[in-house]
Design a protein around this nucleic acid. Structure first.
Length: 236
DNA sequence: AACCAGGACGTGA
DNA sequence: TCACGTCATGGT
C-alpha cells in the first residue's frame, strides 16, 4: 500500500502547498498575498508552507466554528458567516456563549442550516469553555451534538494539530474512483487506511486532506469528469 | 433552473 | 446497524 504516499506526492506536485485551515485574519495580509492563485473561493486566508497555525486561542476557536459551519456547505458561504461574526467581535467563546440564539442565527444565516448550526455552535462553545485550553479527546468531541466524525477530525487536525486524518465526501469519491477503497467502506475504515499507510504527522495529514479537496474541485465536480482524473494514469 | 456544497441527526425498520 | 428524509443559503 505504497499508493497512499505516492498519491500524496503526486497531488502535492500538481497543486502545490495548500496551507489549511484558512483564517479570517490572514485576509489581505501582505505576507499571504498572491499565494495559491488557483484556489477557489476567496483565495485568501491560507498559509502554505506554514504549519504554525493556529497561533492564538482566537484562531483555534475560529477553526472550530468554521469546521461546524462548513458541514455540507461551500466555504464562501462559511466565510460570510464568519465575517458577520467577526464584525461584532463574536469569534470569541464568551461572546458566542452570551448572545441570543436569534442573533446567532441571523449572523450565520449565509452558511445555511442556521437553525441547527446555531444550536451546534452554542453547544460546542459550552464544551470549548470547559476545556480551558486543553485538547479534547476524539470521544468527548463526538459527544457534542453536531460534531460527527469529520467535524471532530477537522477540529483535532487543524485546531489542535493532532494527527487525525479527515475523511470527507471528496476523499471517498476520489479513492473509490481509483478503486483503492470500496463503495461501502465506512468512515472509520477509510480513516484507518490513510492513517496506517502514512507517517503519523499532522502536517502531512493537514496537507493531504487539503490537497484532496483542491484536487476534487478540479476533477470531481461532475461525474462526467471523473475519468479525466490524472491519478487514474499515474497509479502504480 | 436544477443541482450540490469540505455532514449530522432523528426516525423507523 | 442501516437506509432514508431533513435541514438552507448561495454559486454554477
Amino acid at each position: 500500500m505504497l499508493k497512499f504516499k505516492q498519491i500524496y506526492e503526486t497531488l502535492s506536485s500538481m497543486h502545490g502547498p495548500q496551507g489549511w485551515w484558512p483564517l479570517l485574519e490572514l485576509h489581505n495580509h501582505k505576507t499571504n498575498k498572491g499565494t495559491n492563485p488557483t484556489k477557489t473561493g476567496s483565495m485568501q486566508g491560507y498559509h502554505p508552507n506554514n504549519y504554525t497555525y493556529p497561533q492564538t486561542e482566537r484562531q483555534k476557536f475560529e477553526i472550530c466554528l468554521g469546521a461546524i459551519l462548513t458541514q455540507n456547505t461551500a466555504w464562501p458561504n462559511v466565510e460570510k458567516a464568519l465575517t458577520n461574526l467577526n464584525a461584532i467581535k463574536a469569534i470569541d467563546q464568551k461572546i458566542i456563549n452570551e448572545i441570543t440564539i436569534e442573533l446567532l442565527k441571523e449572523l450565520i444565516r449565509p452558511a445555511g442550516y442556521f437553525n441547527q448550526k446555531s444550536i451546534y455552535l452554542k453547544e460546542f462553545t459550552k464544551f470549548f469553555l470547559k476545556l480551558k485550553g486543553n485538547a479534547p479527546s476524539r470521544e468527548r468531541l463526538l459527544e457534542v451534538k453536531g460534531i460527527g466524525n469529520e467535524t471532530a477530525d477537522s477540529i483535532l487536525l487543524y485546531a489542535y494539530r493532532q494527527p487525525e486524518f479527515v475523511v470527507d465526501a471528496y476523499t471517498r469519491r476520489i479513492f473509490t474512483n481509483l478503486k483503492i477503497i470500496k463503495e461501502e467502506a465506512t468512515y472509520m475504515e477509510i480513516k484507518g487506511l490513510f492513517e496506517s499507510n502514512l507517517k503519523k504527522d499532522f502536517k502531512i495529514f493537514q496537507e493531504y486532506h487539503a490537497l484532496i479537496v483542491e484536487h476534487a474541485k478540479k476533477y470531481y465536480l461532475k461525474k462526467e469528469d471523473y475519468n479525466r482524473c490524472p491519478l487514474l494514469k499515474q497509479k502504480v
